[in-house]
Amino acid sequence: MTLFDFLQRLLGRQKPSGTLAKERLQLVLAHDRSDLNPELLEQMRREILEVVQRYVEIDLEEGDVSLETEDRVTALVANLPIKRARPLPALVAAAAAVGMAEAPDGEPAPQELAVPLASEPTEDPAAADRD
């Protein structure tokens, strides 16, 4: 540690490099670990479509499920254009199939579901830089 670094740390202006290393690793590993291989992604896509199809008719040609990364957060993004909701009896059957007591209200599901795979850590050094 140089004298300059020491003073910076004393004044609370600089984090020790070990701490920085841990924060950087946690971010990069969250990303590495969520890196699904194409085979698994395809299987997940099929299964998600299957479940969604029980509730609504979707346009299979236009449907898309993918992993997107922005600002070091990876999200599972499903873009599923809905043709129409299923009639009520079908909905009840679908709900029963997944073990729900009642069918959800007739409103169509939101068109885009974004599920963050790697939650942003409370302290993001990159965010501090952006400010």
Partner: peptide, 17 residues
Amino acid sequence: KMMASQEMLGVDDVTDI
């Protein structure tokens, strides 16, 4: 020494991660 001055990833850091 470097670990004690936090200029290196600590033992707990690595096992946590």
